[in-house]
Design a binder for these strands. Structure first.
Lengths: 185, 185, 185, 185
DNA sequence: CATGAATGAGTTTTCATTCAT
DNA sequence: TATGAATGAAAACTCATTCAT
């Protein structure tokens, strides 16, 4: 059993359930079935742990969305592919999305975490900007497109997780279609 | 100087900056310029404070959106009116939106808070359902429409607050227009 | 309504129920139906209050036992008279006995309280010593006789108060008789 | 060094000096030479500590009085044996007697503590009742005999502890003799 | 290397006392 | 003069971190 892995899993569960300050090191150690002291062999302190977790999942999310993305997809297919990958990621790792988007306060994220986050964001802004310049999507700031699509996706995902909305293929397809309608020219 | 008011203002600032567990009673008392003990004259404990704050702003938001809403507005005008009111509320009370939507864990909200929240949500679901039955918006579950629109709005608002996107009348108008395009038939 | 009196009554009830540290000034004020600040018009602080209360009841008890005590009573009649008066006092003021004997820590009693207590005790020691010298009671140190009788009385009284023993005239007479048997020659 | 033991010893000293509410957790930790947090590794809270202490000493006292008590002792010898054991216990553990008899408010004792106490008391009531039925001691309710003897013993013990009376073998023998005279037929 | 008991600074909460009304 | 809201020091209790085993 990989102890570091177990700690990261436990931390993800607890941070996404109770937030950073609401989850204690003792809780994380218990859930990971390791001694509290063991956490400090792998992470300098609790802040270091939350930042490692954040970076791990930001990277995994970026990887999931962008790895082997065919370069020459037509716009609608590209959008579909991205939405689909994002949905898959959320379905496979609901806690990770939860943690990244809802339960992470800037106040304890360090420079590296913020830089990573920004770099990831910039790649999407570039994509949206190109679609805009190619007259595929509406002529609004890419930051707006990005914020709106991301927000909508997360809003729907939150509804899925809260069981306010059944996670069916139809619902996922509808959400995608609505968002495409929103941004396409 | 109204002390209860000052405590609520300080708590809103600190909870939305640092989350519930990250904001200490001492910080709140300092910010409100009252003694720590004074907080306990107005609120039974820290949980009671966060619930009072949540309910206060949920109610204020509901009021802002729904008070004196003309009954016979054509759908697009209705959507505009609601979006505009929501935007106005967010502009006037950015921390309140922040707190309500991003920094409030279910784990410390009590029954009353949840009931209030649900009641508010139900009124919007009913509105979206009527628009759907009138063939004004797309035939998708009102829960989906609601989650998507709310998520998109909050995503854009978060971008405004993080200064990733300039809060201009154009940007606000664009966001509204995109969302309408998303849901309209 | 005499405020000072009301405060002393409330303090007696609460100190004898919960002890000095367990009874708060706010509780006492509430019970006495006065403002918390009012207590400080009559007593310098909480310590002063408990000492005033102690001295009040010590004096009242001494008075009850010794006032107009016929000087020439035969020993058995004297013992009966004292026992009877003590029993009467306990019946009329169970909380006072409780407070004086069971719920009063030396740690907050001041010099005056202790002096009063000692003076009272000395008068009884003198009485027991005289009975001893007159060969009426056994030839043991008067301190022993006093401690034993007082302890026995309080033990029985505690049983009455705890309802472990019914407070009947017979029980009271028995207790007296047993104690007399203990000390008489 | 056994920390739990040290905490119990310190708590006994402080509770019997200052009462439950008068002894703070910090005082107890200091006296026990442990960190304040350590107390909470062994006891759930301050109430749990005082109850553990109460039960420990009630059990020890019961053990001391009743262990290996010869079954066929003649009444006067039985009384002597019990009195002697009680006196020995008090001499060895004066603070324990102090705490059990004088400084323990029902208000913070839990069900288990009260049950233990009652069970112990019942065994003595049964003994006194048998002596009564055998016409050895006076025909008064065993509750009265028990309360009176216990009270007398504790009164004398208090005098010993307060140095109002020298703890000599003679004094102890006198006390025992007087009490026997009180109850014997 | 892994542990979890121990710690004390930090947290929530209480309360004796003050003071503006 | 009487009040009770306000206070902050002190109480009970928690928890990130260390370190002996």
């Amino acid at each position: 059993m990989d102890r570091k892995e177990a700690i990261l899993v436990a931390a993800l569960e607890l941070f996404s359930e109770r937030g950073f300050h609401g989850a204690t090191v003792a809780m994380i150690a218990d859930r990971a079935k390791v001694g509290a002291g063991t956490i400090y062999r792998y992470f300098a302190d609790k802040d270091d742990l939350v930042n490692a977790l954040f970076q791990h999942w930001k990277r995994t999310l970026a990887e999931s969305l962008l790895a082997d993305l065919p370069a020459d997809l037509p716009p609608r297919r590209l959008f579909h592919e991205l939405w689909h990958r994002f949905a898959e990621f959320s379905r496979d790792n609901p806690l990770a999305l939860n943690f990244l988007e809802f339960h992470c306060h800037a106040s304890y994220l360090n420079e590296a975490s913020r830089a990573l986050s920004d770099g990831f964001r910039d790649r999407f802004l570039a994509m949206f900007d190109e679609l805009r310049r190619n007259l595929v999507i509406k002529d609004v700031p890419p930051q707006l497109t990005f914020a709106l699509i991301t927000g909508a996706f997360c809003g729907v995902e939150k509804a899925f997780q809260a069981d306010e909305l059944a996670r069916t293929p139809e619902a996922e397809a509808h959400a995608e279609e609505l968002c495409w309608e929103a941004i396409r020219r």
